[in-house]
Simulated assay, not measured.
Amino acid sequence: MQQSLEFLVFGATGQQGGAVARALKARGETVRAFVRDAQSHKARALAEQGIKLVVGDLFDRASIERAMQGVDRVFSVQTSSPSGLVSDEQEVMQGKAIADSAVAANVEFIVYSSGGAAGKGLTGMGHFDSKSQIEEHIRGLPIAATITRPASFMEMMLLPGMGLNTGVFTFFMHRDQPMQMIALNDLGRINAEILCHPERYAGQALELSGQSITGKDLECAFSLAAGHPIRYQRFSEELLAGNVFLRKLTELVDNGVVAGIADIPALEREFGPMLTLKEWLAGAGKAPFDAALNMATADIALR
């Protein structure tokens, strides 16, 4: 009988880590979640699902090392600087600390969730280039590792300020320009599958996406889900001229670095069918979409 494995998930109260922790638990695995506050709503929700909480802080190396004791496999993801919670340098420090602690604790396998823009040369945007630095560090360590590079999350489109509640949705692509996206549920189950099978995936860097979507696709899917027309438009030139962050990000979409290069048919052969935007809007995305649709117009920020 195979010995039970112990999985440690970082970022478990966030989007990616939470999806991976839930997917591992759904497979019947033993899961630890690294959390700062065991009494937070999201941490308690994990505990209610039978996930063990280990309290620590990514700025405290000793707490990371304690959490690693007895762990077989690790999922590593860090907060990026656009959150306003860390600098790019701190993200790199935390990513390296997790990997180094895994080596010190004789962890057999680590999956590092990077980003779709990483590993393709310098972008000039710190929160992308930081991930390339962490990738390079992990590749130099004596530990079996897989790097996953997710495309943009479908959930990201429901952030406040994109205009769903005005009937005009604003995003990065031109109307006929494709951009790859993935639903968090797919991201969670794929990373869980990789964590459970290092013999298949160690040493690889995998681009992850579920669907290639144009602005017109968004317009059709959002209009259908809303039950009334939602017009799509790209961020205006005036907005981009006055917002350096959005302008640089849009340039990386235009030159293909952030648009996504995943081989989606190959991913589906390996990991099974991916959620389309329409399917996601009818399932896991329905409640947050309805909330964004009905948000008070005073909350509009990016128009």
Rank of each mutant, 00 (worst) to 15 (best):
M1A: 06
Q2A: 02
E6N: 05
E6Q: 03
F7Q: 01
G17E: 07
G18N: 10
V20H: 10
R22S: 12
K25D: 07
T30E: 11
V31N: 10
R32P: 01
A33G: 05
D37E: 14
Q39H: 09
H41S: 04
K42Y: 05
A43Y: 09
R44W: 05
R44A: 02
L46N: 03
A47N: 10
Q49P: 02
V54T: 07
V55D: 05
L58E: 12
F59M: 07
D60C: 08
S63A: 04
S63N: 08
E65L: 08
R66L: 05
A67Q: 10
M68A: 02
M68Y: 06
Q69G: 01
R73F: 00
R73S: 00
F75W: 12
F75S: 03
F75G: 00
T79K: 06
T79W: 02
P82M: 05
G84S: 09
V86R: 11
S87Y: 08
D88P: 02
E91Y: 02
V92E: 06
M93W: 07
M93D: 00
K96Q: 09
K96A: 01
A97K: 12
A97R: 13
A99H: 13
S101M: 04
A102G: 12
A102Q: 06
V103C: 04
V103I: 01
A104H: 08
A104M: 07
A105L: 00
A105Q: 04
V111N: 00
V111Q: 04
Y112G: 00
G115T: 13
G119H: 05
K120P: 06
L122K: 15
T123N: 04
K131A: 03
E136C: 04
H137W: 14
I138T: 14
R139N: 09
P142H: 13
A144N: 14
A145F: 14
T148Y: 12
P150D: 14
P150Y: 11
S152V: 11
M156P: 04
M157E: 13
M162W: 15
G163N: 14
G163P: 15
T166E: 15
T166C: 15
F172T: 07
M179Y: 07
M181L: 15
M181H: 15
M181K: 05
A183S: 10
L184R: 13
L184Y: 05
L187C: 04
L195A: 00
H197Y: 01
I213H: 03
K216F: 14
L218E: 09
L218I: 02
C220E: 14
A221E: 11
A225P: 06
G227V: 14
Y232C: 05
F235G: 03
S236P: 09
S236V: 06
E237K: 07
E237P: 03
L240D: 04
G242L: 08
F245Y: 15
L246Q: 02
L249F: 11
L249I: 08
G260E: 10
A262L: 08
P265H: 03
P265E: 06
P265S: 00
L267F: 04
L267A: 01
E270D: 10
E270F: 03
T276W: 13
K278C: 11
E279L: 05
A282G: 10
G283R: 12
K286F: 04
P288R: 10
D290G: 08
L293K: 14
M295G: 12
M295P: 11
I300C: 13
